[in-house]
């Protein structure tokens, strides 16, 4: 990490990003960029869903989802992820009240819920592979593992990110930068929740029905 600011004075204070011009609200701009990123992520998931819908019938004589899905586990996953979305909302409420401790605690609970979601999902994947449904079994399972796995990967990235933000909150407290970061991660978390609802409906519900 090299910062070559050879000809200038350092910024007077950390975190107050807004420039003197007055009309460039840096943190607001970053939030907007993240919204646009979410649009691109929507298209990414949209393409994966389309792929899944096209290929889900192509089981090449192998097992089908209806035969192998364990709905109980999936419903538990759904419940856990929805709850974590709620707790991340509570974290934001704490932040708005300026309650740093509450914020970190609620984020930690969100991380724990997210981690249990991932654990359940990995267990589910392992079971499926044991029962003869791996990514290379048929087009249908390729599409299943890729779609659900991409969501799981997003959640995992979110976990690491959330832990990093918690550490930063511990160091810097609530200021304009950390405020924006918490806002973004909670937006991201809600987004993953919405995507999961689609996964649950299109992959699991329509799969077993």
């Amino acid at each position: 990490m090299a910062h070559s600011s050879n000809r200038a004075v350092a910024a007077p204070s950390h975190g107050d990003g807004h420039g003197h011009e007055g009309h460039h609200d840096l943190e607001g701009m970053r939030m907007m960029g993240f919204w646009i990123f979410l649009i691109t992520d929507c298209i990414l998931f949209g393409s994966l869903f389309a792929t899944y819908v096209v290929l889900s019938g192509n089981t090449a004589g192998g097992p089908t989802g209806a035969e192998l899905f364990e709905m109980l586990g999936v419903i538990a996953e759904t419940f856990i992820l929805l709850t974590s979305s709620f707790t991340s909302g509570l974290a934001v409420l704490c932040m708005n009240k300026g309650d740093r401790k509450g914020l970190i605690v609620w984020l930690a609970i969100t991380v724990l819920l997210g981690a249990s979601f991932i654990t359940l999902e990995i267990t589910e994947f392992v079971n499926l592979v044991h029962e003869g449904a791996a990514i290379s079994t048929s087009a249908s399972w390729s599409a299943f593992f890729t779609l659900v796995g991409t969501h799981g990967l997003h959640v995992s990235v979110g976990l690491v990110w959330m832990i990093a933000i918690m550490i930063q909150l511990g160091r810097h407290g609530i200021n304009s930068v950390t405020r924006r970061k918490v806002g973004i991660i909670s937006l991201y978390w809600h987004f993953l929740d919405v995507v999961w609802i689609f996964v649950f409906t299109i992959v699991y519900m329509m799969g077993v029905m």
Binding site: G57, N58, T59, A60, G61, T64, S138, A139
Partner: peptide, 8 residues
């Protein structure tokens, strides 16, 4: 053939 279950 893409091997639908229902032999499509």
């Amino acid at each position: 053939s893409s091997g639908h279950n229902h032999g499509s």
